[in-house]
Design a protein around this nucleic acid. Sequence first.
DNA 1: TTGTATTTGTGAACGCCGTTCAGTATCATG
DNA 2: CATGATACTGAACGGCGTTCACAAATACAA
Lengths: 214, 214
Amino acid sequence: MTMPENERSQRILARRTREKQELRQKILNAATELFAREGYEGVSIRKIADRIEYSPTTIYLHFKDKAELMGNICSDVFGALRQRMGEIAALGLTPLEQLRRSLRAYIEFGLEHPNHYIVLFCLPEPVELVQAMEAGGYSQDPGMACFDLLREGIALCMREGVIAEGDVEFTSQSTFLMLHGITGALITMRSFPWLEREALINSYMVRVMKSLGA
Amino acid sequence: MTMPENERSQRILARRTREKQELRQKILNAATELFAREGYEGVSIRKIADRIEYSPTTIYLHFKDKAELMGNICSDVFGALRQRMGEIAALGLTPLEQLRRSLRAYIEFGLEHPNHYIVLFCLPEPVELVQAMEAGGYSQDPGMACFDLLREGIALCMREGVIAEGDVEFTSQSTFLMLHGITGALITMRSFPWLEREALINSYMVRVMKSLGA
DNA sequence: TTGTATTTGTGAACGCCGTTCAGTATCATG
DNA sequence: CATGATACTGAACGGCGTTCACAAATACAA
């Protein structure tokens, strides 16, 4: 005898759940790669299955449907954005400078992950999701965490008097809308004869800050 | 004898091309209705065919593919936007007031035609289209005509000194980006807990004008 | 009028897609 | 070894955009 029975059971169970997790991760990795390279349309359950050498059906043992799979991939990206905002906060800048840097980080982050950005913000949300959200589950939403950070930054700047006073929620939402404007358009409207990107973002940022009364 | 031969030929030809046009229009009507109600995904060649009681193949005698069909539907809508902007111009307002009204008209127009707006501005453009545009055919683009109007309005306001001076093209593009921000987001991010729409648009407009130095 | 060429329309098929379901293989355990 | 659970799969369903060979209708020339 080398091991008590119940410990063996536990180990076996542990291995099996670990293996399950590993396969889940393999699916996510394959999907992520396809997704980043070829966008939402470029990901198909069958393509993922081919890549990981499992049957398409297997994927449904780990994800309810394609939308859930995509959701998992995209909310990871939000975590990264939140982290980047955290890094900026850790720099010990003035509230205004921190806000400015955060806004810019949002734009750049979107442009770095265009396919994720499209899925998260540019595609029409399925009606079911809308209803689920209205039924009161914003709090888990990973994107909402980033928005909360933005709102706090704006509230702080108002308290310090470095931007114009006003309703925090209105200001936060309209600021977000402005960020979405340039980020979304530069990603999706690729055939528009935009001016040089960096310069355009710079002048846009100036206007955003100006509209904040900074 | 009732009619010279060559005239008869002409008439017959006229009827046939007319009939062809009529069928084309029937296709467009069916597609438009489906599209407005169920969005891009809701339109399928087969559904259109069912509706007009022709085979799916017939549709390909009138449109190269689904994208071209959609393009036809959407560019009509731009014509309507342009017309609305023309109506505003005919009101004889001050340049600044006219600009303000035009910007608002853009937002409202987008919100009134959400599915068209998504196709035109929110979906990633196929690579082929991007290349075609870069190969030099912006001029025919019906959306570009609207943008030109915006640019003229901004240039006029600058000349009159009612908004801050600056590069006309930069200002025009960033203004358009701001408009797209609120329009696109309100359409696609339906589950976000937005503030009351009218008030949000109002406060957004105030910020846009402020950022123009008005 | 009859044959011919062109236009107009179609059914069947191709190769995709997301998803489901019945069934098989694997495997820890009684 | 038998049992019951778990992991996995092939085949299929109904959809999609699109193509192609073929049929029907039509206009016109001989």
